[in-house]
Structures are given as C-alpha cells and as structure tokens.
Design a protein around this nucleic acid. Structure first.
Lengths: 141, 141
DNA sequence: TCTATAAAAGATATTAAGGTCTTTTATTCT
DNA sequence: AGAATAAAAGACCTTAATATCTTTTATAGA
C-alpha cells in the first residue's frame, strides 16, 4: 500500500515524536534502532522530511531530530503526501490519466470510495494519536 | 495502490470479458490496443493468468484469449490476488511482519478498516459488473 | 580556537518492477 | 504434410526503488 520509504518514515517519525514529547532530540542511530529501520536509508527520508519542514534537525553535539510543532498538527496525510506524494489519495485505480465521474474507468465509483476512506483515515490520524500506546517493543519484530 | 501489472491485467481482462460476451476470442494485439497496455508485458501477465486458470488461451489460427466461466464468478479480488498477491488485503500498514489486535502497530485499527473496505470492494466487483459501461474510448486517454 | 559530534549532501551499489525481444510449441487451414 | 498463425517460454534490457558508503558542513562544548 505504502512504499518502504513511507513505512520507515512513519515509524521513524513516531519515535521522534515520542522523544519530542519527552522534551529531547534524538539521533539517527537511536531512531533506527527503535523503529527497526535501515540507518542510511532512513537518514535520507528524514533529510527529506526536514527539508519539507515536517521535522526539524540540528547538527553537531547534542544535536538530532525533533519536532517544533504540536504533534496533533502533523497528520498521517501530511506525512504520506510528503514521502509518497498525493497519488495514493487521488490516482485512478487502473492508472488512467483522466478518470472522473464524467469519464469513469470501470472501477471508478467503487475505488473512489475506498480511496476517500483512506484519505479520511490519514487526515484523522496524527503524530499525537499515533504515539499513544507506542512502546519499546512495538517495532521489534 | 495496485502495481502496473495489476492495472494492465484488469484492463486487459475487461477487454477479453467483453469479447467473450460477444462469443469470440481475442488476440494479444487487439487486447493491448483496446486496453492501451504494452504488448509484451501484457502478454506475460495474461500468460500468468492463464496458468492460474483465470482465463483460457488457445494457440494457432483463430486462437486467442477467452474466458470459459461465468464472468460474474471472477471477482476483482481473484484478479488482484492472482497478480499482486494477497498482501494488499492483509499486510500491515507499516510493514511489520507481526501486527494484529493483540500486538498492534500504531495504525493498526484505522488501517484495518480501510483494508477491509478495499477487500469488500474487490469482492463485490466482478468481470461482469466491470464491463457494464465499458466502451471503445474508455482506455484511450 | 580546536575537537568531537551529528546531520547534509553526494556518489555508488543492489534489487525488484517494468518492459522488450527472440525462439519454441501448439493448432488450424489449405 | 506444409504453411501460417498465435500463444508460451525464456533471455534480456531499462528504470525506479531500496539501500549503503564517503565526504562535507554546521554546531556545541572543552
């Protein structure tokens, strides 16, 4: 459903969010250990998210990643859109460039409702809600 | 959402289904023209679907692809499962191997409902319903 | 100011998806 | 039987996603 980059990104973000809640920054190594994601690849993903201002980063000693906004303001939708782009929320199920109510593909109506559900779900979830119940084991399997 | 192979496969299948309804077989060239899919790649996909008995094929003159079952018996679920496998209907949204109600990932409940919706949609749609309203232009854009 | 630290940036490698081409096999029709 | 047709099979190529490694830049703290 989501790309690996997106799965890793979300997992890493929940770890950063949790640390941010505790009032501290966290380095890439700790993030990747906790989120169980490959280090260099995750670093690239976070670099991208920092550029898009979803997260913040600080170089040097006592540096690391953190979040300077209210966690509830960052929705899953924002995250997925930043990493995988908006096509999962808007694209045609059969890959047609033009597909709408007036010129629908055979799946159009059914697929649209699933896609809208996905979008609604992603808008409803945010980093605050995602980290409730998150614990050390969550990603260790 | 679906792979290219799956998008092409579904499109090609609707073309075959339509021809089958008219009582005739159809060759790979015509299928690909009508479904607007790359020929060699689509041939591979159909070969696979024929092996899995979703469609039938006949070699030689007056041969081609056709379907020997009731079109309403072949669901979108069967097709997606045959081409992309079942992971879209069952996989964890964050890519965890083990993720269930007892040890959920942060997205588990929300994601499960979207996934179930997708599954329901795919079980409700079948080749018969997919070809209602299908016309020559549908894929030409 | 120097050193250590940690992210950014860039180059490179690997794997899987997407796509093409050629040869072989089965079948129909003359 | 022979020729033509059309799918099957297999080899191969290209691109994008995934992943790693090295060098550079920024910053804190001694």
């Amino acid at each position: 459903m989501f790309s690996k980059a997106c799965e890793y990104g979300i997992r890493a973000l929940t770890v950063i969010a949790k640390k941010t809640e505790d009032g501290s920054k966290v380095g890439i190594k700790d993030i990747c250990k906790a989120s169980n994601t490959p280090e260099s690849f995750t670093a690239k993903i976070l670099q991208n998210l920092a550029k898009k201002d979803i997260i913040q980063s600080q170089k040097g000693p006592s540096g690391g990643f953190y979040i300077d906004r209210d966690l509830s303001e960052i929705s899953l939708y924002d995250i997925v859109d930043a990493i995988d782009g908006p096509s999962i929320f808007f694209g045609c199920g059969l890959g047609l460039k033009e597909c709408d109510a007036s010129r629908p593909c055979p799946m159009h109506d059914s697929f649209e409702s699933v896609r809208d559900d996905m979008m609604k779900m992603c808008k409803e979830n945010d980093l605050q809600s995602l980290i409730t119940g998150l614990n050390k084991d969550t990603y260790q399997r």
